[in-house]
């Protein structure tokens, strides 16, 4: 699968334009001995924006969490820009599907974004004016600068989502992993945020987004990972996102009827 994607990259531009920035191999994850991900390998390239697509319960969130060691994996490794996960933490910004935080916490929107800078601040450094400005500009990128001083519990759901997006931006990472960042965000904001993510890829950063809207995937993303417990396909959108692949990912749930060979995750799922 990865050979295919590399091949396509070469075809597209005439030379290998980008390197593998996020490399997961052989990831198997089980909750309570029930396998949720089975031998998943995936590569994302720097300077490109990848969508992770699959039905509810396919293991998309689990994939992101396990690749970062946030839930235990049975097998599997992650390399970030050639470094093992442990050395590369500072190069990752991860935004979970639902922030499980205490909304009554004594922190303003700006304070939350500032937390994204903690990792770079170092031992005993206190947030300075410079950090505040940096955090403010990140809030501005998601159109939330006017809410900087609000306590986070006093923001709407979509606004809270945007604050956590701003925190991820503040991390100035190399690889951005975002779990459905557009859920509950209005169309105008989605546009603004998407432009920001695109701008990141233009700087050579790697962006990986779990995305549910099949209609917009083609327009917005460069590459795609189709996943349903196993990898169905991984590569440039135009090459791998065929109706056949989608049918296998969603195993009939998109309105196609389940026909022919049951493949990958669909087969496993049918028997468990």
């Amino acid at each position: 699968m990865s050979a295919l994607s590399k091949q396509s990259l070469i075809d597209e531009t005439g030379f290998i334009s980008s390197k593998v920035a996020f490399d997961v191999s052989g990831l198997t994850v089980a909750y309570d001995r029930k396998p949720v991900l089975w031998d998943v390998s995936f590569q994302a390239h720097s300077g490109r924006i990848t969508a992770i697509v699959g039905p509810n319960g396919a293991g998309k969130s689990t994939f992101l969490k396990a690749s970062l060691g946030l839930v235990p994996a049975v097998t599997g490794q992650t390399f970030i820009l050639g470094e093992a996960l442990k050395e590369a933490r500072k190069n990752i910004a991860y935004m979970p599907q639902r922030a499980s935080v205490d909304w009554d916490f004594p922190a303003s929107a700006l304070d939350v974004v500032m937390m994204g800078l903690y990792g770079r601040m170092g031992f005993l450094r206190w947030p300075s004016q410079h950090h505040r400005e940096q955090a403010l500009s990140c809030l501005d990128q998601v159109d939330m600068a006017d809410f900087a001083e609000r306590q986070i519990g006093q923001l709407s759901g979509g606004q809270q989502q945007r604050v956590f997006m701003a925190r991820a931006l503040a991390q100035e990472a190399e690889v951005y992993l975002m779990d459905e960042p557009f859920a509950g965000v209005d169309a105008a904001t989605e546009n603004v945020i998407f432009k920001t993510l695109k701008a990141l890829t233009a700087e050579g950063k790697t962006v990986i987004v779990v995305h549910h809207d099949l209609d917009t995937v083609r327009k917005m993303f460069d590459d795609v990972l189709l996943i349903n417990r196993q990898v169905i396909a991984n590569g440039p959108i135009d090459d791998v996102m065929s109706d056949e692949a989608l049918r296998r990912t969603y195993s009939g749930r998109l309105g196609f009827h389940k026909a022919g060979e049951p493949v990958g995750g669909a087969a496993v799922q049918a028997h468990v």
Partner: peptide
């Protein structure tokens, strides 16, 4: 505030 973030 955010233990997942701290872990990540």
């Amino acid at each position: 505030f955010d233990i997942t973030f701290a872990k990540a």
